[in-house]
């Protein structure tokens, strides 16, 4: 008999697309044939969707700022001057 922990692990791995084809088929069969498995699947899927979509919204527009490369170039100049290296770094704009 499969306990609820195994059930959870298998559904979780299915949602992550980390099961072999035959295992995935078996879990899908269990989900369609059992209310308990189906509930587990739906709850986990809803939680995953919620997290993913919130993340999508929260990360909208997150990218390096216009001064990112300039700041980095300055840090690298400092680093190289400490290391007394003659390398010249150039960031194109």
């Amino acid at each position: 008999m499969v306990n609820s922990v195994d059930e959870f692990y298998q559904v979780s791995a299915l949602l992550d697309d980390e099961l072999r084809d035959s295992e995935a088929m078996e879990v899908k069969k269990k989900i369609s044939g059992s209310r308990r498995w189906k509930k587990q699947y739906e709850e986990l899927k809803a939680l995953g969707d919620l997290l993913r979509l919130w993340d999508e919204l929260d990360c909208r527009g997150i990218r390096a700022s216009a001064t990112f490369e300039l700041r980095l170039a300055a840090s690298l100049r400092n680093l190289r001057s400490r290391q007394s290296s003659p390398i010249i770094l150039f960031f194109p704009h």
Binding site: C59, I62, R63, A64
Partner: peptide, 26 residues
């Protein structure tokens, strides 16, 4: 050395977003 500029250009947005997902502070 210009190879590093290319790396930064390719991955600056990825890096900021990667870290943002951990710290949620731009």
């Amino acid at each position: 050395e210009e190879a590093f500029n290319e790396i930064v250009n390719r991955y600056k947005d990825y890096s900021v977003r990667f870290c943002y997902r951990f710290v949620r502070d731009f």
